[in-house]
Design a protein around this nucleic acid. Structure first.
Length: 425
RNA sequence: GGAGAGGUGUCCGAGUGGUCGAAGGAGGCAGUCUUGAAAACUGUUGACGUGCAAGCGUCCGUGGGUUCGAAUCCCACCUUCUCCGCCA
């Protein structure tokens, strides 16, 4: 959520931003609703002032007829207040709805574009593997090596679920542990978060738990939902708090299961482990002062690169264009790993994503820090350290061998205890 | 899940329907004293909205209700603690 005063003062910029981001939001409506709401608030405050005065007059001893007159006046005021309150509440709700749809402002360097094709590649690392033999995609490889079972999962749980089996289980944990070691050394506080969060926390982060197009599973009758990412539980960690500036930046690394409905997502780019209803993820989260958030964003991106360079996975870094940014992001970088089995002859596939959400989330969640000049909203950033399912695709497809085996990246061997996954004899 | 007791400012803690944004203490900050510190003493010390400002309004877990008037009474929910039950 943006600051309404900012919107009023920068109305044209806010409207341009909405257009660039390809979103439907009415800034003019938000402003006029705010002004109307404000007028009602002032009216209401005036009535309340009269009520308070009226009540104060009745404290001492009074003649009976004086008291009766005051009570009558009070009754009248009570009605007026109820009426005005009702009008105010309705207007306020309408205003909130309008302002919630307005996206965060974008960093001035964000490339302007409509969709993911317009994202700007800013960097490449590693080289794309060349295969002198017919290479396979991860679905085929994991099936042959008995590492992943989609068919049984479909019968038991539904489509887009999977069983990890045998060495894949170890590989999954090795990737997790490898990542946690890096993050702990860098000063992140490691946390295992709940996989369930209250809906208002999810909403504060920018996830809509309700509605047809929601990507979140709600738990009927509980007011809670399954988290789509630990961003929700890590961002909710300090909800409603005023933080001590000496404690900033706060760097957390949270591991959680992630659940996504992925309604309507299908097609060749979604096959196998790439788009699933459940996966495990290590997420980085940072709370910092506004002057540090650009710097922290680069830091998170560099950390992501360090993790994937260590695994010797070829990737590129993409600066997400305006039209492809989520509502809460000010700027977003994705790491896209080379996936040989993706598409016809290999393609880049998103494996991490880091967003600087500035104060867009903290304003809704009420997370501030103390300054000499009053309490200010903190900046909040998130970034994927390790999305297990997708990282697994990259590891498996890039390290496949002609004999059908998979080489384990050197950095992972201490964690797996084996350096190769071989087909059964 | 059952029974009981609570949720008040940075913290602890008092609070009879009107004099309560809220006693008292601690802590923080400023000052006096001191070579410096401690102690003692004095003063000060919540957030949010609105307004140029003075001010006005809101906030005592959350949301409803009763009342001319609610921290105080009623209802629901959330939550903490104790005991019992169940359980990895």
């Amino acid at each position: 959520m943006l600051d309404i005063r900012f919107i009023k003062e920068n109305l044209d910029a806010v409207k341009d931003n909405i257009k660039n981001r390809n979103m439907n939001a009415d800034a003019d409506l938000a402003v006029s609703l705010y002004d109307e709401k404000n007028a009602l608030q002032q009216e209401l405050d005036a009535f309340r002032q009269k009520r308070n005065e009226n009540a104060r007059k009745m404290k001492g001893k009074l003649e009976q007829d004086e008291r009766t007159a005051l009570i009558e006046e009070g009754k009248l005021l009570k009605e007026k207040i109820a009426e005005t309150e009702k009008a105010f509440t309705e207007k306020d709700a309408a205003f909130r709805e309008a302002i919630m749809t307005i996206p965060n402002m974008a960093h001035p360097d964000v490339p302007v574009g409509k969709e993911d094709k317009d994202n700007l590649e800013i960097k490449r690392s590693g080289s794309i593997p060349e295969f002198s033999y017919k290479f396979k995609d991860h679905v085929e490889l994991t099936s042959e090596l008995d590492l992943v079972d989609f068919d049984t999962a479909t019968r038991v749980s539904g489509t887009k679920f999977y069983y990890l089996k045998n060495e894949a289980v170890i590989l999954d944990m090795a990737l997790t542990r490898y990542t946690l070691d890096i993050l702990q050394k860098k000063g992140f506080t490691l946390v295992q978060t709940p996989d369930i969060a209250r809906e208002e926390i999810a909403e504060g982060i920018g996830f809509n738990p309700r509605g047809e197009e929601s990507n979140i599973y709600t738990l009927e009758g509980t007011g809670t939902c399954l988290v789509g990412t630990a961003e929700i539980t890590l961002g909710g960690y300090h909800a409603g708090k005023t933080l001590n500036p000496e404690d900033l930046p706060i760097k957390m690394a949270g591991i959680s299961h992630c659940f996504r409905r992925e309604a309507g997502a299908a097609g060749k780019f979604s096959k196998g482990l790439f788009r699933v209803h459940q996966f495990t993820k290590v997420e980085m989260f940072v709370y910092c002062t506004p002057d540090k958030s650009d710097e922290m964003h680069e830091y998170i991106r560099e950390t992501e690169e360090e993790i994937f360079q260590g695994l010797e996975i070829p990737y590129r870094v993409v600066d997400t264009c305006s039209g492809d940014l989520g509502a809460s992001a000010y700027r977003k970088y994705d790491l896209e790993a080379w996936m040989p089995g993706r598409g016809e002859s290999g393609d880049w596939g998103e494996i991490t994503s880091t967003s600087n959400c500035t104060d867009y989330q903290s304003r809704r969640l009420g997370i501030k820090y103390k300054t000499d000049d009053g309490n200010k909203f903190v900046h909040m950033l998130n970034g994927t350290a390790m999305a297990l399912s997708r990282a697994m695709i990259a590891v498996i497809e890039n390290n496949q061998q002609e004999d059908g085996s998979i080489l384990i990246p050197k950095a992972l061997v201490p964690y797996t205890g084996f350096d190769r996954i071989k087909p059964a004899e």
